[in-house]
């Protein structure tokens, strides 16, 4: 639990926590096997800056702009990606929800 708190202080959490318009830095993947492989192939590699772009009208999935492509992930799948929220993206400097 101490670890979780520490992670939260650093602003690290699952990708699904990013609201549309917010940017984040991929810090790790918690999935294994084929899902991890697939995420890596799609460009969700640690060190990648990405941004939540828009959310489906029904609330799920959310589209993320990552390495020049827009890719939609369901919340359950997006939770396999750990991100650090970009400090500026929470404030007024947040970019418009579109890339």
């Amino acid at each position: 639990m101490a670890r979780t708190n520490e992670a939260e202080r650093k602003g690290i959490g699952p990708l699904a926590l990013l609201a549309p318009g917010e940017a984040g830095l991929v810090v790790g993947l918690s999935a294994g096997g084929l899902v991890r492989r697939r995420l890596l192939d799609l460009g969700f590699v640690p060190g990648t800056v990405l941004r939540a772009v828009r959310r489906s009208p029904l609330g799920d999935p959310t589209a993320y702009s990552v390495r020049g492509a827009v890719i939609a992930l369901r919340a359950a799948d997006a939770n396999n990606i750990l991100v650090r929220r970009a400090p500026e993206s929470t404030g007024a400097t947040a970019a418009a929800p579109d890339d």
Partner: peptide, 11 residues
């Protein structure tokens, strides 16, 4: 395909 690691049918 995005890669040649073969993680989907297309790949």
């Amino acid at each position: 395909t995005y890669s040649l690691f073969a993680s989907s049918v297309e790949e």
